[in-house]
Every structure is written in structure tokens, then in C-alpha cells.
Amino acid sequence: MPDLGKYAEAVLSSYVLSILLVVALVAVSIRRARKMKNALEEVEKRGKSNG
């Protein structure tokens, strides 16, 4: 751990907040992508079986 001096709070909090935001964005994107993929497959299968 590098010595951050008196500004440790500022540096750490900006890293934590930014990483949290990025991770949240990625997680939301991946979750939605997965959900949509599965849902679409289901609908396509249904469409095929019904002719």
C-alpha cells in the first residue's frame, strides 16, 4: 500500500466510488444481456414449435 499522506481519504474514496460505478454498470449490462438472450431463445423456440 503506498503512503497516501493526508489526502488518503480523497484518493481512496474516488477509486472506490468509480470502481463501484463501473462494476455496477458492467454487472447490470451482463445481467440484462443474459436475461434477454434466454428470453429470446424461449420465444423463438415457442414460435418454431407452433409453426
Binding site: 503506498p2 503512503d3 497516501l4 499522506g5 493526508k6 489526502y7 488518503a8 480523497a10 484518493v11 468509480s18
Partner: peptide
């Protein structure tokens, strides 16, 4: 000081 590290974000 160390605040310069924020630049990478």
C-alpha cells in the same frame, strides 16, 4: 500530493 492519482480515473 497523492491526489494526483485521481487523474487515472
Amino acid at each position: 500530493g497523492s491526489t494526483v492519482k485521481i487523474i487515472y480515473l
